[in-house]
Design a binder for these strands. Structure first.
Lengths: 215, 215
DNA sequence: TAGATTGTTAATCGATTAACAATC
DNA sequence: TAGATTGTTAATCGATTAACAATC
């Protein structure tokens, strides 16, 4: 077991492992090898073993990993054994969609407050939460002990919202707006911008030359 | 100019460059240096120059890059100078949110058909498109020349939908469901699963030890 | 011209994979 | 015991960054 700083690539794979392990547990699989996991998750077994070994000796030689035990360990590593309150700014369609996800709950994550700048949205009900005005954001974040902020506002407003989140004391931000946010280094930002994904996909299309617009 | 295969990391940065360049153009900035870009996008200037140099000599020594010209070039590289039709399966909240995005349009991408397996959804109107039953998917994909498929169905159904997309002849898939899809290697898949982002964010929270549930 | 900035090579850094002794 | 599979070291591979000649 090392105490080196763990690379982001490793951390990003942990939720993927966790997700699959939970599925295995539901299917009452007791034990799994890095080989099996690798096959299912399209990853190199050595990589999986190495990833896990950063955090402890979770496996048994000749046997593999105990599914329940590994779930428990990964949830602990990811801090999903604490309750983590999440706030969301941007009560549009996407924000609405995220609020309705129930996955969080099982993992002790919960969107506990929703904010929006638009008058027309305020007071609206989303998943049993009343949309609050931005003016209440900082107070609510502090009172409700919100530690992660989700941003689902248009690009132009995202930086402002991020700054409000930072001021309120949020520790991490998940940003869906297509902008690079500037925040102090103690706040972690992940960008979940699907336009980037979609546009980069286009690169891999075969060149058909068809229907080239005038431009 | 090299003809080596370009790494995915490079391709994924291209849309980020493009996005920012478009913003610069709107602000009537004529020229930009890798230095400037790097600052705005939190990237190393050398990396930006190297990325672009894979595709051609787009810059001018001592001057930088012509904004309009670079936009044009990147759009060409990403094949965004062709019309690219997109199909979406899963007319839930998330699917709905994606359909309403207008970003695509400017870049010649357009969601032209929406499908769902649920009876209650079929015939519904989403962004001026009638939701079609899955049984029509393969025909519609072929007739409308749909080249990219977006999957916004629950995890359990995602693999099936992917297979239908592949059979219909889609070249690439953007998957929002939290599963690793198995598809033939000629089909490109990007996973845009935000639960992975969110859970990996939790790792970076400070350990507070507070409120640990019984579990 | 002097200053700026590219394109590119070389150096560095980091991440993935292979291999294997340890051991269940 | 024999077969399986871990944890870990060493080898490989790839991506990022620094440095600088070329040149606008």
């Amino acid at each position: 077991m090392k105490t080196l700083k763990i690379s982001e690539a490793v951390v990003r794979r942990l939720p993927v492992y966790l997700r699959h392990l939970i599925e295995l547990k539901q299917r009452e699989v007791l034990t799994v090898s890095s080989q099996d996991l690798g096959q299912k998750l399209d990853l190199n077994p050595a990589q999986i073993r190495k990833d896990l070994a950063y955090f402890g000796d979770f496996g048994r030689k000749g046997i593999g990993y105990d599914v329940s035990y590994l779930i428990q360990q990964i949830r602990h590593i990811l801090k999903l054994d604490q309750i983590i309150n999440v706030g969301l700014v941007g009560a549009g369609k996407l924000g609405h969609a995220l609020c309705n996800y129930t996955v969080y709950l099982k993992d002790n994550m919960k969107i506990v407050a929703v904010f929006d700048a638009m008058e027309s949205k305020i007071g609206t009900d989303i998943n049993n939460l009343k949309v609050q005005p931005m003016s209440e954001m900082i107070t609510t974040v502090r009172n409700q002990h919100i530690r992660i902020g989700i941003i689902t506002v248009p690009a132009a407003e995202a930086q402002y919202v991020a700054e409000q989140f930072v001021e309120a004391g949020v520790e991490a931000i998940l940003n869906f707006a297509p902008v690079i946010l500037k925040v102090p280094s103690h706040v972690r930002v992940h960008t979940a911008d699907f336009t980037t994904d979609l546009f980069s996909l286009a690169y891999y299309l075969t060149d058909q030359g068809k229907e080239v617009p005038v431009q």
